[in-house]
Amino acid sequence: MVVRDISQRKRFLNSGNVYLPHIAVIEKIIEETPTIRTFHFNIKDDKVREQFTFESGQFAEYSVFGVGEAPFCISSSPTRKDHLEVAFQKVGRVTNAMNRLAVGDEIGFRGPYGNTFPMDYLKGKNLVFVAGGIGMAPLRSLIWNVIDNRAKYEKVTIIYGARSPDLLCFKYDLTDWQKDSSLNTVVTVDRGTPDWKGNVGFVPAVLEKTAPSANNTVAVVCGPPIMIRFTFPVLDKLGFKPEQMITTLEKRMKCGIGKCGRCNIGDVFVCRDGPVFSYAEIKGLASSEY
């Protein structure tokens, strides 16, 4: 996986005005937690919708017209073409406005942008997914992708946590995955409630206890920065090499295409060269600003 290899960048209708979003229609809204929502949506124009392709790990710019634009990963899997999904947390101007939208409303969508999870590299490997909170969104695209191509991969372990049971996202997925005997799905919360029957503990600690073997394994990690910072040392302890740890970074990516300037870490632009990086690559970046 080479960060600066831009030949792998997926281009979508790359001629003409790249800043002009496509109109998309919200088809379903799922209230994941009190502050996190998932939209199921589709691009309105038939031709554009049919031509549209993306890979797990890529992101897009979403507009609430008149309010603004913000970047989120595509949280559905490219193996499922019925609609696209995006999950977002209500934290700022655009997400607050997104939270006010209803089924049938239109949003702007442009993308997909950025690189993808290294699908060829993951093939034939054991996979460990480590996610916290809304950090499951990009991983979920990859997890469904893996499930839909299950024969291509070896053992799959999913470790997912949130601060409390009501803050777990994608509960419907978790139920499916826990039923699937080809997956080892461990769900944990930082603090339980009286009716919580599952694990209690921080994600890195639960990862350490689960202790997946590092042999022929790749760990894919996504969550709040604090979780990521504590997860890498645990993986290191378990014998994972930096090349075996993959994450996806979040920055204030305004243009999404490497022009506007603000998402760089050294000479790497997260929107253009990322957002997916191996820990080996991140360690080599000229900055502690990831």
Binding site: Y19, S63, F65, G66, K254, C260, G261, R262
Partner: peptide, 21 residues
Amino acid sequence: YCFDINDEQSKGEAARFRNWD
């Protein structure tokens, strides 16, 4: 050349702008 992108709306009219950042 760094820039920002901002939407504005008033009285049913809206537009997207970019400005230096």
